[in-house]
Design a protein around this nucleic acid. Structure first.
Lengths: 231, 231
DNA sequence: AACGTTTTTTTCCAACTGGTCAAATTTCTG
DNA sequence: CAGAAATTTGACCAGTTGGAAAAAAACGTT
């Protein structure tokens, strides 16, 4: 006579779904749980960033994470849960540089270093950039609220700072919102359209140096534009 | 006793698969065929541009085209066929503006009008832009050859033109490849990241005027940059 | 070693996927 | 209008997909 098993003991404390409210006991979360979750998130980032939410399959992710599908589902009971967690984590990282733009600093260096940081992120976290891009292309169904809320407030805030700098004559007058857009666009381009950039630059110029070339170019573009300086 | 039918008469002349070689007779192609194919391509553009190749389903496309799946498959026997045709058509449209940049023209107006045209395309053909973006994010598996071939040659060509203009002192010196990238990035941003642009600009500023604002801003950016002109 | 707990694997399923096939219907041409 | 060709539909299929359930294995504690 086999011993009586309790059906499906305690599932790992998943704080993923924001728990509604007062979760009686948060459940400690073991070391293995954290490790595996990290592995899964990393694998999922690779898959989601390439194929988008719909195009990605749990099998692909499980495969990339080196575990079976049911095993993966033990840690993240739904596909959406993984995606949501990735998006949340990514957004925080993604907006950090803009937050750091300091209104008490020197305008030109501040902008310059914002551009540099964004470009570094495109270089160091291309998958995060593509995950975000994919979400945008689909109409941001899962993060629209954040865009229209938190993000908008942040941009409004920084746009004000930029306007003030313009009023003080520290930088030339231009639409601050579109200025921010143009920084986003030019830098993220090197992550999102990386294949194209490499293909066009070719083997010789498309190597590791391309980010430095880009940095130099963007410096020129944003600082002085294309009009030739008349001697 | 039902009359004997010939099994599956003549399928519509599909020149899609490039027919190997000497296709005996191209088959005229009826009016209905052209119409339906257009409807399908239009519907497919909408679906592929949002979900990417993997994420899009034939059912979705058939639905959007207002016909049954087998009916759609009658015109395009494979999903890939539809996608390939869309990509090909789109690439031609997409590169036209760059082709039109005239080396015998006045440099500054030429660049200015290239930017304007690209921005108009982002406004008028956002789905095409997103289709392209989706393909890029996935690593361009279906068009890499074109990127590294035709596109690269075109860009090399125009980069030479830009360099010449720089040598002549008509525009300031900067990496011509990254200059082209930055024009692509800033203009396509308004198609690919449209949701974000709208969300950040809000109801009032995010309306139809946003493209004019963008045009004005890009004009400033590319012409004079951000450094304040010292009086 | 013996226990409960956590993790993993095996098996399974219903819905969806891209695609086929033959029959039914519509359209075109004389 | 008849007959052939073109178009559309309905039934179907094998493979994939997200996910459930339960048993098996591994782990941690005493």
């Amino acid at each position: 006579m086999p011993p009586i098993k309790m059906k499906n003991a305690a599932k790992p404390a998943r704080r993923s779904t924001e728990d509604g409210e007062a979760a009686s006991k948060p459940r400690p979360q073991t070391r293995i749980q954290r490790e595996k979750q990290d592995i899964i998130l990393d694998a999922a980032l690779g898959v989601f960033s390439v194929h988008g939410f719909r195009g990605a399959t749990i099998d692909q992710i499980a495969d990339a994470a080196g575990m079976s599908k049911p095993n993966l589902l033990y840690y993240f009971p739904r596909k959406e849960e993984i995606h949501k967690q990735l998006i949340t984590k990514m957004l925080a990282t993604w907006l950090a540089p803009l937050r750091e733009m300091d209104e008490t600093g020197d305008p030109i260096p501040e902008i310059r270093s914002y551009i540099r940081r964004k470009l570094e992120m495109a270089r160091d976290f291309p998958r995060e950039s593509r995950l975000f891009a994919n979400e945008m292309l689909q109409g941001a169904p899962r993060i629209y609220d954040i865009l229209a809320g938190e993000l908008r407030e942040l941009v409004d805030d920084k746009a004000d700072v930029l306007l003030r700098w313009m009023d003080e004559g520290k930088i030339s007058r231009a639409d601050p919102y579109h200025l921010i857009f143009s920084i986003w666009a030019t830098t993220q381009h090197y992550a999102d359209f990386d294949v194209q950039v490499r293909a066009v630059l070719g083997k010789d110029r498309g190597g590791d140096g391309r980010f430095e070339d880009a940095a130099r170019f963007l410096e020129t573009l944003f600082m002085t534009g294309l009009s030739p300086k008349k001697a």
